[in-house]
């Protein structure tokens, strides 16, 4: 929720520089990646519904993406564990860019722009590394048993 709230607050400014930040999606994918046994299909569906209700223009968009992304992460979660930071950043930023592209295509095709997608891919790759490190430190300090 905090991630999507951040997106809501920062994107009106960042879009002027052709950047679409995606904190909410990246934070969600981190937690699925970090605790796959606790966040499964139902959690993704429910979380997507809540985000759709409060932050989206249509019901179902975030649900479908969260469920699909959650499935892919669950499928390859152990392979991801041996990936480097760079490989992880490329995968998660790629997913995030795909999410942004579909959002524009479906909900706002007039504003679809490859410049936004490319710049968002790069910035979200950088953001992913930051989110990964911060969330991991948070998880280890708060949920030390997880």
């Amino acid at each position: 929720m905090l991630g999507f709230w951040l997106d809501d607050s920062l994107n009106p400014v960042s879009i002027k520089f052709f950047l679409e930040l995606n904190f909410g999606f990246l934070i969600f994918t981190y937690w699925v990646f970090a605790m796959p046994e606790k966040l499964q299909s139902l959690a993704a569906l429910f979380y997507g519904l809540v985000i759709d209700l409060f932050f989206s223009q249509v019901i179902g968009f975030n649900m479908i993406f969260f469920v699909a992304t959650s499935y892919v992460i669950h499928l390859y979660v152990f392979r991801f564990r041996i990936f480097s930071y760079f490989q992880l950043a490329v995968f998660f930023s790629g997913s995030s860019t795909f999410y942004i592209a579909c959002k524009y295509l479906l909900l706002s095709p007039h504003n679809y722009s490859y410049v936004v997608l490319i710049s968002s891919f790069l910035i979200n790759a950088v953001l992913w590394v930051g989110i990964y490190l911060i969330m991991r430190a948070f998880r280890r300090s708060i949920f030390s048993n997880l």
Partner: peptide, 26 residues
């Protein structure tokens, strides 16, 4: 292949449910 946590069935149900909601809303 790596081990999997959840059967694909649950995800498929969630995916189609979301798709139906999305289609009906749009």
């Amino acid at each position: 292949s790596t081990p999997k946590y959840t059967p694909v069935r649950h995800y498929a149900i969630g995916f189609f449910l979301s798709a139906i909601l999305l289609y009906s809303d749009i």
